[in-house]
Computed example of a mutant assay.
Amino acid sequence: MTAATADQRLLLVHAHPDDETIGQGATMARYVAEGRGVTLVTCTAGEMGEILVPELEHLAADREDGLGEHRRGELADAMKTLGVTDHRFLGGFGTYRDSGMAWHEDGHAVGDPEVLAQHPNAFWNADLTDAADHLVAIIREVRPQVLVTYDQFGGYGHPDHIQAHRVAMYAAQLAAVPSYRHDLGEAWEIAKIYWGAMSESRMREGLRALRDAGDTTTFEGMDPDGPLPHFVTADTDLAAGVDATDFVDQKMDAMRAHATQITTDGPFFALSNNVGSQAWGVEFYRIAKGERGDLDDNGLETDLFAGL
């Protein structure tokens, strides 16, 4: 059985290697274990990412510019850990380049004008229809019932996350039109679309545990009782919480595979060490299309395929 031949099929669209594991790594591992099809589409190789391994700093974009190829290997290792066998780069590896980012004074990411000017194939520069067509072909081949991507702000404003959202949402519409691009396959409508989310209550609980443990540097500047960043979602806006705590170890091992981007003494592991598996074992979602199925006592779906 392949991802495309499983009875239930999930498609995830992410901007860079490591985004998928941080956001939905446990869900992916759980669904693979349950025999569901999981297909991951990554839009860029993350060429402009920060390099957290000193001996690999020579791969930086302003030196050898080899980070993308290295992260391609990290992603392959992470997917092997999660059990995901169907992974593609949008349009093929190297079609779209990481657009880079800078920080706005309001605390969210924005595009890097220098990178965008220097690299015409930066993902933010992509023609929306051209990029969407690459994904339309995948949607019509895999025929997923469920799609997961970012919200309209890309979680925290990164231009590639925002573009991935736009491409995914547009491609889902185009793929369902019977008269659109017959050469890309038979029309397919995705029944349910979700945007990945971070629960506000869980984030506050995690921050409180860190601060009570004397950790003031992890997620520095965030107050458990104060305003939280853009990527945190009010619990009232959540539609689903997938409990995949049995697969947290796989998720954490997959995060370790993204070694240039995630350190074991960084915030993700600090949160896990202080809060336990619940910090990353239940992954939350907002629903953007489709009808919700059965709900738990918290008013959440526990399965993205609920009702299908």
Results as ranks from 00 to 15, higher is better:
Thr5Ile: 00
Gln8Asp: 05
Ala15Cys: 14
Ala15Arg: 06
Asp18Lys: 13
Ile22Cys: 05
Gln24Arg: 04
Ala26Tyr: 05
Thr27Tyr: 03
Ala29Met: 12
Tyr31Ala: 05
Ala33Ile: 06
Gly37Ile: 01
Cys43Gln: 06
Thr44Glu: 02
Thr44Ile: 05
Glu50Thr: 14
Glu50Ile: 10
Ile51Ser: 08
Val53Ser: 10
Pro54Phe: 10
Leu59Arg: 11
Leu59Asn: 07
Leu59Cys: 10
Gly66Leu: 10
His70Trp: 14
Glu74Gly: 10
Glu74Arg: 08
Asp77Pro: 00
Ala78Trp: 08
Lys80Glu: 15
Thr81Asn: 05
Leu82His: 11
Arg88Gly: 00
Tyr96Ser: 04
Met101Cys: 01
Trp103Tyr: 08
Glu105Tyr: 00
Glu105His: 11
Asp106Ile: 03
Asp106Ala: 14
Gly107Tyr: 04
Ala109Met: 13
Pro113Phe: 02
Gln118Thr: 15
Phe123Thr: 08
Phe123Ser: 06
Trp124Glu: 13
Trp124Phe: 12
Ala126Glu: 04
Leu128Ser: 10
Leu128Glu: 14
Thr129Gly: 02
Ile139Asn: 04
Ile139Gly: 07
Glu141Gln: 14
Pro144Ser: 04
Val148Glu: 03
Asp151Asn: 14
Gly157Arg: 05
Gly157Phe: 07
His158Pro: 01
His158Glu: 04
His161Thr: 06
Ile162Cys: 12
Val167Gly: 05
Ala168Lys: 07
Ala168Asp: 02
Ala171Ile: 02
Ala171Ser: 08
Ala172Gln: 04
Gln173Leu: 11
Leu174Ile: 01
Ala175Val: 04
Val177Gln: 14
Pro178Tyr: 08
Pro178Asn: 09
Arg181Phe: 02
Glu186Trp: 03
Trp188Met: 09
Trp188Gly: 08
Glu189His: 12
Ile190Pro: 02
Ile190Gly: 04
Trp195Pro: 00
Gly196Gln: 12
Met198Gly: 00
Ser199Gln: 13
Ser199Pro: 05
Arg211His: 04
Asp212Ile: 01
Ala213Cys: 01
Gly214Asn: 09
Thr217Asp: 13
Thr217Tyr: 00
Thr218Val: 01
Thr218Ser: 15
Thr218Lys: 03
Met222Tyr: 11
Asp223Glu: 04
Asp225Phe: 10
Pro227Lys: 12
Leu228Gln: 12
Phe231Tyr: 15
Ala234Ile: 01
Leu238Arg: 02
Ala239Pro: 02
Ala239Gln: 05
Ala239Gly: 15
Asp243Thr: 08
Phe247Val: 05
Phe247Trp: 15
Val248Lys: 07
Val248Ala: 09
Gln250Ser: 12
Asp253Leu: 14
Asp253Ala: 15
Ala254Met: 13
Met255Phe: 09
Met255Val: 11
Met255Asp: 07
Met255His: 08
Arg256Ala: 15
His258Phe: 14
Thr260Ala: 09
Thr260Lys: 10
Gln261His: 11
Thr263Ser: 15
Thr264Ser: 13
Asp265Gln: 06
Asp265Val: 13
Ser272Asn: 14
Asn274Asp: 01
Asn274Leu: 08
Gly276Ile: 06
Trp280His: 15
Glu283Asp: 08
Phe284Leu: 00
Ala288Trp: 00
Lys289Asp: 04
Glu291Thr: 11
Arg292Trp: 03
Gly293Ala: 12
Gly293Met: 09
Leu295Ala: 12
Asp297Glu: 15
Asp297Gly: 13
Gly299Thr: 10
Leu300Phe: 13
Asp303His: 01
Asp303Ser: 07
Phe305His: 07
Ala306Asp: 06
Ala306Thr: 06
Gly307Arg: 07
Leu308Ala: 11
Leu308Glu: 06
